Simulated assay, not measured.
Amino acid sequence: MTRGNKRLVLFDLDGVIVDSRKNMEVSWSAVRATYDIDIEFESYFRHIGRPFLDIMEKLGLEKDGENIHRIYNVVSSSRLDLIEEFPGISEVIRELRKNKLVVGLVTSKDKERTLEIVRKLDLLFDVIDCPEKGQRGKPNPDPLMRAMLQCQKDPADTIYIGDMQVDYEATARAGVDYMHANWGYGECDAKTKKLDSSGEILKALLG
Protein backbone atom coordinates (compact mmCIF):
# COMPACT_ATOMS: atom_id res chain seq x y z
CA MET A 1 0.00 0.00 0.00
CA THR A 2 1.34 3.42 -0.95
CA ARG A 3 1.76 5.66 2.05
CA GLY A 4 0.30 9.13 1.95
CA ASN A 5 -2.16 8.60 -0.91
CA LYS A 6 -5.27 8.26 1.24
CA ARG A 7 -7.40 11.24 2.19
CA LEU A 8 -10.40 9.50 3.78
CA VAL A 9 -9.98 6.85 6.49
CA LEU A 10 -13.17 5.00 7.42
CA PHE A 11 -13.45 2.76 10.48
CA ASP A 12 -15.85 0.04 11.49
CA LEU A 13 -17.01 0.39 15.10
CA ASP A 14 -17.51 -2.97 16.83
CA GLY A 15 -14.36 -5.06 16.79
CA VAL A 16 -12.17 -2.22 15.51
CA ILE A 17 -12.71 0.80 17.75
CA VAL A 18 -14.58 -0.84 20.62
CA ASP A 19 -14.83 -4.27 22.19
CA SER A 20 -18.58 -4.63 22.64
CA ARG A 21 -18.83 -8.42 22.81
CA LYS A 22 -19.91 -8.48 26.48
CA ASN A 23 -22.55 -5.85 25.77
CA MET A 24 -23.85 -7.88 22.84
CA GLU A 25 -23.93 -11.07 24.87
CA VAL A 26 -25.97 -9.51 27.68
CA SER A 27 -28.35 -7.93 25.15
CA TRP A 28 -28.85 -11.19 23.27
CA SER A 29 -29.45 -13.02 26.54
CA ALA A 30 -32.30 -10.60 27.28
CA VAL A 31 -33.75 -11.20 23.82
CA ARG A 32 -33.62 -14.97 24.32
CA ALA A 33 -35.34 -14.72 27.70
CA THR A 34 -38.04 -12.33 26.45
CA TYR A 35 -38.95 -14.26 23.30
CA ASP A 36 -37.98 -17.78 24.43
CA ILE A 37 -35.52 -18.06 21.55
CA ASP A 38 -33.38 -21.17 21.41
CA ILE A 39 -30.52 -19.60 19.46
CA GLU A 40 -27.17 -19.35 21.19
CA PHE A 41 -25.20 -16.11 21.23
CA GLU A 42 -22.46 -17.55 19.01
CA SER A 43 -24.99 -18.14 16.24
CA TYR A 44 -25.95 -14.47 16.41
CA PHE A 45 -22.38 -13.26 16.82
CA ARG A 46 -21.03 -14.94 13.70
CA HIS A 47 -23.15 -12.57 11.60
CA ILE A 48 -21.89 -9.39 13.26
CA GLY A 49 -21.06 -6.74 10.67
CA ARG A 50 -24.45 -6.89 8.98
CA PRO A 51 -27.42 -4.69 9.94
CA PHE A 52 -29.43 -6.16 12.83
CA LEU A 53 -32.54 -6.95 10.78
CA ASP A 54 -30.40 -8.70 8.17
CA ILE A 55 -29.01 -10.88 10.97
CA MET A 56 -32.55 -11.65 12.13
CA GLU A 57 -33.36 -12.83 8.62
CA LYS A 58 -30.27 -15.04 8.62
CA LEU A 59 -31.49 -16.58 11.90
CA GLY A 60 -35.07 -17.05 10.70
CA LEU A 61 -36.38 -14.40 13.11
CA GLU A 62 -37.43 -11.75 10.60
CA LYS A 63 -41.10 -11.97 11.65
CA ASP A 64 -40.30 -10.53 15.10
CA GLY A 65 -37.19 -8.66 14.00
CA GLU A 66 -38.37 -5.14 14.81
CA ASN A 67 -39.56 -6.09 18.31
CA ILE A 68 -36.40 -8.07 19.00
CA HIS A 69 -34.36 -5.08 17.88
CA ARG A 70 -36.15 -2.80 20.34
CA ILE A 71 -35.47 -5.11 23.30
CA TYR A 72 -31.87 -5.58 22.23
CA ASN A 73 -31.30 -1.83 21.93
CA VAL A 74 -32.82 -1.01 25.32
CA VAL A 75 -30.56 -3.49 27.09
CA SER A 76 -27.52 -2.53 25.02
CA SER A 77 -27.97 1.18 25.79
CA SER A 78 -28.38 0.44 29.50
CA ARG A 79 -25.08 -1.47 29.64
CA LEU A 80 -22.64 0.82 27.88
CA ASP A 81 -20.34 0.17 30.83
CA LEU A 82 -19.57 -3.19 29.21
CA ILE A 83 -18.12 -1.51 26.11
CA GLU A 84 -14.41 -0.74 26.12
CA GLU A 85 -12.17 1.03 23.64
CA PHE A 86 -9.41 -1.03 22.10
CA PRO A 87 -5.96 0.18 23.25
CA GLY A 88 -4.58 3.20 21.45
CA ILE A 89 -7.39 3.66 18.95
CA SER A 90 -8.41 7.15 20.17
CA GLU A 91 -4.84 8.35 19.78
CA VAL A 92 -4.74 6.93 16.25
CA ILE A 93 -7.91 8.77 15.25
CA ARG A 94 -6.64 12.04 16.72
CA GLU A 95 -3.29 11.67 14.96
CA LEU A 96 -4.96 11.02 11.61
CA ARG A 97 -7.07 14.15 11.99
CA LYS A 98 -4.00 16.11 13.11
CA ASN A 99 -2.40 15.11 9.80
CA LYS A 100 -5.38 16.56 7.89
CA LEU A 101 -6.97 13.23 6.95
CA VAL A 102 -10.75 13.00 6.90
CA VAL A 103 -11.85 10.33 9.37
CA GLY A 104 -15.20 8.59 9.37
CA LEU A 105 -17.21 5.80 10.93
CA VAL A 106 -19.16 3.27 8.85
CA THR A 107 -21.02 0.77 11.00
CA SER A 108 -24.03 -1.52 10.83
CA LYS A 109 -25.06 -0.45 14.33
CA ASP A 110 -28.08 1.86 14.53
CA LYS A 111 -27.37 5.58 14.81
CA GLU A 112 -28.77 6.10 18.32
CA ARG A 113 -26.48 3.55 19.96
CA THR A 114 -23.55 4.53 17.74
CA LEU A 115 -23.78 8.14 18.89
CA GLU A 116 -24.07 7.03 22.52
CA ILE A 117 -20.79 5.14 22.19
CA VAL A 118 -19.05 7.94 20.30
CA ARG A 119 -20.06 10.43 23.00
CA LYS A 120 -18.94 8.07 25.75
CA LEU A 121 -15.48 7.75 24.19
CA ASP A 122 -15.32 11.46 23.29
CA LEU A 123 -14.38 10.72 19.68
CA LEU A 124 -14.76 13.10 16.75
CA PHE A 125 -15.56 11.95 13.21
CA ASP A 126 -16.10 13.92 10.03
CA VAL A 127 -18.79 11.50 8.87
CA ILE A 128 -20.82 8.76 10.57
CA ASP A 129 -22.85 6.37 8.45
CA CYS A 130 -25.36 4.00 10.04
CA PRO A 131 -28.06 2.03 8.22
CA GLU A 132 -31.46 3.68 7.96
CA LYS A 133 -34.64 1.72 7.36
CA GLY A 134 -34.82 0.56 3.76
CA GLN A 135 -31.12 1.08 3.09
CA ARG A 136 -28.80 -1.78 2.19
CA GLY A 137 -25.99 -2.50 4.62
CA LYS A 138 -22.70 -4.38 4.38
CA PRO A 139 -21.62 -6.44 2.48
CA ASN A 140 -23.27 -4.11 -0.04
CA PRO A 141 -21.08 -1.13 -0.96
CA ASP A 142 -23.79 1.45 -0.22
CA PRO A 143 -22.60 2.58 3.26
CA LEU A 144 -19.09 3.25 1.99
CA MET A 145 -20.42 5.02 -1.09
CA ARG A 146 -22.60 7.29 1.07
CA ALA A 147 -19.66 8.20 3.30
CA MET A 148 -17.44 8.99 0.32
CA LEU A 149 -20.16 11.09 -1.28
CA GLN A 150 -20.68 13.08 1.91
CA CYS A 151 -16.93 13.72 2.20
CA GLN A 152 -16.52 14.32 -1.55
CA LYS A 153 -13.78 11.70 -1.85
CA ASP A 154 -13.17 9.07 -4.53
CA PRO A 155 -12.64 5.35 -3.87
CA ALA A 156 -8.95 5.78 -4.72
CA ASP A 157 -8.70 8.34 -1.89
CA THR A 158 -10.35 6.04 0.64
CA ILE A 159 -9.46 3.14 2.91
CA TYR A 160 -11.69 1.16 5.27
CA ILE A 161 -10.55 -0.62 8.41
CA GLY A 162 -12.76 -3.52 9.45
CA ASP A 163 -12.66 -6.88 11.18
CA MET A 164 -15.15 -9.13 9.37
CA GLN A 165 -15.36 -10.76 5.95
CA VAL A 166 -18.42 -8.64 5.14
CA ASP A 167 -16.27 -5.54 5.67
CA TYR A 168 -13.81 -6.70 3.04
CA GLU A 169 -16.62 -7.67 0.67
CA ALA A 170 -18.14 -4.20 0.95
CA THR A 171 -14.81 -2.54 0.11
CA ALA A 172 -14.22 -4.85 -2.85
CA ARG A 173 -17.61 -3.93 -4.27
CA ALA A 174 -17.02 -0.22 -3.62
CA GLY A 175 -13.52 -0.20 -5.13
CA VAL A 176 -12.00 0.86 -1.81
CA ASP A 177 -8.77 -0.41 -0.22
CA TYR A 178 -9.11 -2.42 2.98
CA MET A 179 -7.07 -3.15 6.09
CA HIS A 180 -8.10 -5.92 8.49
CA ALA A 181 -7.94 -5.48 12.27
CA ASN A 182 -6.70 -8.79 13.64
CA TRP A 183 -7.73 -7.74 17.17
CA GLY A 184 -11.37 -7.83 16.08
CA TYR A 185 -14.00 -10.56 15.88
CA GLY A 186 -13.53 -12.21 12.51
CA GLU A 187 -11.08 -13.31 9.86
CA CYS A 188 -10.60 -12.22 6.28
CA ASP A 189 -9.81 -14.73 3.56
CA ALA A 190 -8.52 -12.14 1.10
CA LYS A 191 -4.89 -11.18 0.63
CA THR A 192 -5.07 -7.76 2.20
CA LYS A 193 -3.13 -5.75 4.77
CA LYS A 194 -3.52 -7.31 8.23
CA LEU A 195 -3.05 -5.17 11.33
CA ASP A 196 -1.94 -6.62 14.66
CA SER A 197 -2.21 -3.37 16.63
CA SER A 198 -3.81 0.05 16.23
CA GLY A 199 -0.37 1.67 15.96
CA GLU A 200 0.15 -0.11 12.64
CA ILE A 201 -2.60 2.06 11.15
CA LEU A 202 -0.39 5.12 11.49
CA LYS A 203 2.63 3.30 10.06
CA ALA A 204 0.60 2.19 7.04
CA LEU A 205 -1.00 5.56 6.33
CA LEU A 206 1.52 8.12 7.56
CA GLY A 207 4.82 6.26 7.39
Rank of each mutant, 00 (worst) to 15 (best):
N182R: 10
D122A: 13
I37P: 01
D54F: 05
G4D: 06
F52D: 01
A181V: 03
T158S: 10
R7D: 09
E84I: 07
E40C: 13
L123T: 03
P51Y: 03
K191D: 15
P141R: 06
E84S: 14
S198F: 01
V118I: 13
L61F: 07
V74K: 15
D157M: 08
V166E: 03
G65A: 06
L144C: 05
E85G: 09
E91W: 13
Q165I: 03
N5Y: 08
L115P: 03
D110H: 13
G207D: 11
A156V: 14
I93L: 11
E62V: 06
D19N: 11
S197M: 15
L8T: 06
V118C: 07
M56Y: 01
Q152H: 15
Q150V: 14
M24V: 02
V31D: 00
D126T: 04
H180W: 06
M148E: 04
K203P: 04
R70V: 08
L10E: 00
I37V: 15
N67C: 14
G207T: 12
I161E: 00
V118R: 05
F125I: 07
D196E: 10
G15T: 02
D38R: 13
S90T: 07
K109H: 08
K193T: 13
I161N: 01
N140S: 14
N5E: 10
M179I: 04
E112K: 13
E95L: 14
I89L: 04
L202T: 08
M164E: 09
V31E: 01
K63C: 12
L195C: 09
A30R: 04
V74F: 08
R3G: 14
A204I: 06
K193L: 15
G104S: 08
R50E: 11
M145Y: 09
K58P: 04
D167N: 05
S78A: 09
S108R: 05
V103C: 07
L121A: 06
L59T: 06
S198V: 03
N140M: 14
G134E: 08
W183C: 03
K58V: 07
L205R: 00
E95G: 10
T114D: 07
E57Q: 09
R146I: 11
R7M: 11
E169N: 11
T158E: 07
E85V: 12
N182Q: 12
P139Y: 08
P143D: 07
G162W: 00
Y168D: 04
A170H: 02
K100F: 12
G88Q: 01
K22E: 09
E91D: 15
I93R: 01
D54L: 04
K153T: 10
F86E: 00
R136C: 11
D126I: 02
E95F: 13
I68Y: 00
G15F: 02
I83N: 00
V118Q: 05
L82D: 01
G60P: 05
K58N: 11
S90L: 05
A33F: 11
D189T: 14
R119Q: 11
L101V: 05
I159N: 00
I128G: 04
A172G: 10
L96Q: 05
D12W: 02
P141K: 07
E116R: 15
H69D: 14
E187N: 13
D36N: 13
I117R: 03
T114Q: 07
V106P: 00
T114N: 08
R136L: 15
Y178C: 02
V74N: 12
T158A: 06
C130V: 04
V31Y: 00
M24Q: 11
T34L: 12
P139Q: 07
